[in-house]
Structure formats: C-alpha cells, structure tokens
Write a protein that binds this DNA or RNA. Structure first.
Lengths: 343, 343
DNA sequence: GTGAAAGCGCTAACAG
DNA sequence: CTGTTAGCGCTTTCAC
C-alpha cells in the first residue's frame, strides 16, 4: 500500500502538497495538482482512514446503537437501519452497528474509545440511561424516539398523536363506535414506560374522548402467538367490538389470521388496523392488513441528516415528528373458490 | 479525555509501562500494575482506538458487506446481521455495515482505506466480482454463500442439498407424489446464477430422480403478491399438485394465504413447505407454514468465528455447510368458530 | 503556491 | 521489570 510519502516522492513535491490536493484544502497550481493526481493514479494510492482520523480527530464513523431487547426489530426497524447506512455513506460516513445493553455504561465505553464521531440511538425509552450517558460525554447524537424530557434535543420520531387519531378517525368515519385499542404488555423492565406505548395510549384516550366513544384498552404480548390469543379474548372480553387498533404489527397479524381462522370475516364483521407497521408486513395476510405505515426509511435518512448537520454546522436541528400514512387493505374481490378435494 | 501520557505521569511510570498493562503484553510488577490501574480509574482513562489502530495496524473493525439488491433481507438475513454483530463484539471487534453496490470497485475502495481488518460478504453470487476484488487486495474475508469456484475458501453456507432432499423426502414420506418446486425468477441480472436457486433446483432434480417422481419446477417472483398469483397458476398449470416446495419465504406466505383464501385447505388438500425460512416468518400465517428453517443466527456466528480465526491464527478454516431444520406447522386443532355477524 | 516540521495517541522494538 | 525512542500515515500551522 503506497503512502502519501510515496506519492509525494513520485510527483516530486512535499507530502503537505499532496495532502492539500487530496483534501482540497489549499490552492495548488493546476500543473502540480495534475502531476500529483497522476502519481496517485499510477501508484494506486488511497488515503489511510486511520491515520487521517488520528491527525484530523474525526473518524467519519457513526454508531447505530440498538438495544438488544428480547424482541426483534419490526419491518420498519430494518428499513431504518438500511436507510441510515445508505444515507451515512452519501455523506462519506460509515455506519457501525452497535448492539449494546440498554444501560449507559457500555455506551460510555464505546464513546470513550473515540472511534465514532456521533451516535444514533434507536428505540429510545422515556427514561433512557443511554441518553444521560451520551450527554455526559458531549458526543453528538441523534435520538430515534424521545425521552420524557422535552429538552433532550435532536430527536426524530413518529408522530404518535397523528398516527393514532388518524387511525381512530378513519374507523369512526367508517361508522365504528366500539373500537378496542390493543397495546403492549408493560410488565417487563424494558417496556415499562416505552414511549410508543405511552404516547399512543394517551392519544387514543384523547381522540376517543373527542369523538365521544368509550376508550376500551387491552394489553397483549407483542408476537403473533399473543395476537392469535387475542382473537379469542377479544370476543369474550369485548363482545361489542367492531374494530380493533393494534399497536404491534406482529400481534396484528396474529389477530387477523386468528380471527379469520375462526370464521369471522374481515372487514365485514370486524375491522383490524395495525399501527406502526411497514408495508411489507401488511402483505403477509389475506385480506391484507389496513395499516398506519411507519416512516421507517424517512426516519433513518432524517436521523443521519440531522446528526451530520449537528456535527458539521454545529447547529442543533429542531426535533421532527414524522406522520404515519394510512394504507387501506387492498380491496379483495373474493376470488373464485377452487373446488379441490383430492388426496 | 486523558491520554496514556497523563496516566503515566499520574502513576509516575513511563508511557510504555502503561501500554503494557493496558494490553497485558509484558510482565509488570503487581505493585506498579495496581498503581497504574488506580491512575487509570482516577483519570477515567480509555485507550484511544484510533491511535491504537494506527500504531498496531489493526483496527478491530470488521465490515459486513451486503449488496443493496432490490429485494429486502428475509428474516434469516436479519438474524444473520444481529448475530454477526453480537459475535464480533465478543471478540472485541466492531461490525460496520457496508451497503455497497454489487460490483468489486467500491469494495476495493473500502478495503484500500484500511479501516477494516476483515470483510464478511453476504449474498455471495456464483460469479461474484466482489470476491475477486477482495482476493486481489489480500484482505481476510469470509463468504456467506459460495461462488462457483470451489477454491474460494472460507465460506459458510446453507446446505442446500440437505435442505432440499430433507424437504422432499418429508413430503414423499407423507405420501406426496406430485410435488411442485417453486424457484425464483432468474431474469434479473442480479439473480441470474444466484447460488441458492441453482443449488436448490439441482438438488430437487436429484432427489426426485432418486425417488422416482417427476420434477415439476415453476418460477415465481419473490414476494407475497407473486406468491398469491401462484395460488391460481398452480392449479391451472399443475392440477395434480398435492404438495408445493417454495424457495422464497415471502412467496410461500403469499401462496398459503392465497390458496386458503380460495377455499383450499392446507394441509388437507395441499401441503406447502417453505424453504430457507426463519421461524418468525412461519408464524405469520394460520395454519402456520411448514418450513425448512435457515440457520441464520448460526451462520452469523460462524462467519465471524471463522474470519477471526483466519485473522488471528492465520489458518483458513474449512468451509462449513449448515443444515436446515424441518419445523412442521403447528398442528391446528380447528378452533370453535365464533358466530359473528353484527354491524 | 509549496515545504518543513510538529504533532495526533499509541505500539513495539531495543536497551538497560 | 521498566524506560527510551522511533515510528504508524496523515493534518496543519508557520515560514518561505
């Protein structure tokens, strides 16, 4: 691997001059510049990222910290990651995955290594020790989600109020008056005070109050199996239900398939709407789910934009809440049944 | 941020000695060691990863290169990423996501920066320019998947022969004699010669020949919509079908829901088996899919193990093919139908 | 416009 | 066992 030294010798200039053209950081005669460029090409020179980082005190690496909770990332979590990595690379940054515990200690370690210029925190909790840790180290960061403290700046998040009221309003417009809201079970340490649960539930109470319908709220686990169980619970506990709003996409899929499997028709008998969901998940069922689509990709891009702006311009962009989009289930003309009965 | 210099001064030793205890690289008296450790704690010292990397010529960063194809990562792709990141961190390595084009050029750039000690290549194609690029730069790498060239060492992959024959054998044991194999459409540049397609199809031909049944193979797109269309195509093109083997999990879900939606019973009328699938995907339908479970997590761990062994010990581990596991659909006692007809 | 030189913080001989 | 010292490859003043 040729170094800058080699290039300088080859071009008959000083190492400093090479640096100037590589970084375009000082004026250089067109003649010498092209001579240097020729040498770089001839030698196949590539600047050494590590040396550059040490000297310039910037690594051009961003960390994406996602807590290793017991649950898997949903579809939009994945969208988020991919979008963030792609966006980072357009800025000339690399994205490092950082699967850490949910406490601040490990994060402090990571940041102390000075390997990353900034950190993106996914799945921020209302009371998140990682945010405090990050603040203490003065590392630039961006939050996906919000803490309870409104002064924790630079976050992007889903607009839960908009999502929830949009969903409820839609169902209400369709004539539904008995709407059940299914939120996540909060008995676990990590989910207690989980922002999306708290904010969505609050929004649900608000909008139902506004519309003058009773807020029925039940808890459920966050996977398809739990959702399947709901299919039973729902009709015993809340027999009047005509529409269900499910906070978790996995649970929503379980509920929908479970309900259909029991001979209940969707949406004729009951409407099901899945919140915080990606397009992809909606297609897994038939009929497809009606969803409030999470802006996963947009969040990923935005988070990186914001963070980079903070690091380079030094300004702290305003928090942004992105709306969810209502995506109705594709209307399924009932297909011709296939007479089928061999074996 | 205190440096090693500060620690040395504080402890009244030389910078070298501090380095020795930090890296545990030379014997140091218990007395001085503890004095140094005390100083480190007192000052809150953390070694600077960049300086360390420059001096030692190892960054302790691994790159995970995944091609940004048009398709999304399946469930096991995600499992893989998470497992790889976690395993890397147990070795003291960081994992950097690298969303690159599918050609070798960008990869050469990345490696030229000398920011990573090794590269893991996901979704390796039978004829993959990235592998050639990597070989040329002499960077340690591990492949997920295989090229056509058996001398491309250090790969881990799914044992497609085992997966396929296991699946077919299972169906055959159940009495099926008309088994359709659904592979991916190969008209796209990026999928042409895609290893999993090629190997699985070959294995299917082999095992059906061995069992004396006719190999029926049809192509389909790789998403739920395409799978849904299959529900129709299948019964017109191959009316004798009693079992279907679907290579893609999204297509499998589409097929299953589509078929059920048309009044065909699964598995009474037709059996559906999804290949290369994660547990998670199997739960999205009801009845759940019978799957050959991909060893996504195991692959992720193994790939990192292998790569690290190559980098540290210098030995090149033997390729490993991991088997898939047959996970039958959970037997669904038909639930009591719920009389339901309000609204 | 170009060059000399002093670091960036740490590792790794080599001496002692 | 501990200290001295020469880099690692590049950025960045400060002179010229």
């Amino acid at each position: 691997m040729p170094t800058m030294r080699d290039v300088a010798d080859h071009a008959g200039v000083s190492i400093a001059t090479v640096s100037f053209v590589v970084n375009n950081t000082k004026p250089v005669t067109a003649a010498t510049r092209s001579r240097i460029e020729a040498s770089m090409k001839a030698l196949g020179y590539r600047p050494n990222a590590v040396a550059r980082a040490l000297a310039s005190r910037r690594t051009r690496i961003l960390a994406l910290a996602y807590p290793m909770l017991d649950h898997r990332l949903g579809g939009s979590g994945m969208e988020f990651m991919i979008a963030a990595a792609r966006t980072a690379s357009t800025y000339g940054y690399h994205l490092m995955m950082w699967p850490g515990a949910n406490d601040g200690r490990e994060l402090t370690e990571l940041v102390g290594q000075q390997l990353v210029d900034g950190v993106i925190l996914m799945e921020v909790q209302l009371d998140d020790p990682r945010v405090a840790a990050l603040k203490a180290t003065a590392t630039p960061y961006a939050l996906i989600g919000r803490t309870a403290d409104p002064s924790d700046s630079l976050h992007v998040d889903i607009d839960f109020e908009q999502s929830t009221s949009g969903a409820v309003q839609h169902l209400h417009d369709l004539g539904h008056r008995h709407i059940v809201f299914v939120t996540g079970t909060q008995d676990r340490e990590s989910y207690y005070n989980y922002g999306p649960y708290v904010r969505t539930e609050r929004a649900f109470r608000d909008v139902t109050a506004r519309l003058g319908v009773a807020p029925v709220i039940i808890e459920s686990g966050q996977d398809t199996t739990a959702g399947r169980d709901l299919a039973h619970r729902l009709f015993t506990e809340c027999p009047d239900t005509t529409a269900v709003l499910v906070l978790n996409e996995f649970a929503a899929i379980g509920l929908l398939t479970g309900v259909i499997h029991r001979g209940v028709r969707v949406p004729e008998d009951v409407s099901i709407m899945s919140m915080l969901t990606s397009d992809e998940m909606a297609t897994y069922t038939q009929p497809s789910l009606t969803i409030m689509r999470s802006p996963g990709t947009a969040l990923g891009e935005l988070a990186v934009h914001q963070l980079v702006q903070r690091m380079t311009k030094g300004t702290v962009p305003d928090p942004v809440l992105l709306p969810s989009t209502l995506v109705p289930a594709e209307s399924t003309a009932p297909p011709p049944a296939i007479p089928y009965g061999r074996r």
